[in-house]
Design a protein around this nucleic acid. Structure first.
Lengths: 105, 105
DNA sequence: GATTAGTGCAACCACAGAGTTGCATTAATC
DNA sequence: GATTAATGCAACTCTGTGGTTGCACTAATC
């Protein structure tokens, strides 16, 4: 669990249309067709985006009758955020150390 | 400050080579030419990546004699992480609410 | 059983961008 | 001042992918 490498997650998050989809799903679960009604792109395009998002664990799908309903997974976002924060903190720590050493010269 | 829209930041972080550059810079500041010595890509390719990273505020550059030295900015990463975390938390909150309502039916 | 709303699959187009090579330019160094 | 090491700029290739259209399939609904 949460063993996803983070680069593909960022790649998935680096697209405006996918954010539109995520935001729309944030209002409540929906199918690709339903999303196509609200967004200015084709159902097929949305389906592809949903596949990408699902691959990196940002959404999950559930069959409801003849439709595939998608749900956004905030936990994956939080996990990614935590990892990012740790990296950023580490880099700032090193930067501070280097700066300190430089000033001592 | 920190008014960067986050989608381009994610797009910038969604590339393996750029992460290699960030990690290399994490070991200490360096110029595009210096990085080209350590990474399996051309100096020009690295220069382009550095431009992307600088555009979204992930690195900054300082002229040192005839070379342009780059430095990674962990603060921008932390800021991005904080925003991500807030979004994820919000979505999980809504999901929980929806689930609760569904169970009450 | 016919219709209809939803998904799945495949081919295709167009553009962005990751990477390259080549040359011009600038600033240290001898 | 000549040389050398760095950056800057431009053109080009090639792959990835966001988007489309078209059709086949499946499962509700009438």
């Amino acid at each position: 669990m949460t063993s996803t490498t983070l680069v593909p997650v960022f790649a998935a998050l680096g697209d405006e249309t996918r954010w539109s989809i995520l935001v729309a799903l944030g209002e409540g679960d929906a199918s690709a067709s339903a999303l196509a009604g609200r967004l200015p792109v084709t159902r097929q395009a949305i389906a592809k985006h949903l596949a990408v998002l699902q691959d990196v664990g940002l959404v999950e799908s559930v069959r409801v009758g003849r439709e595939l309903r998608y749900r956004v997974l905030g936990a994956q976002l939080s996990e990614t955020a935590r990892r990012l924060d740790r990296i950023g903190a580490e880099w700032d720590r090193r930067l501070a150390a280097i700066k300190r050493i430089a000033e001592e010269l």
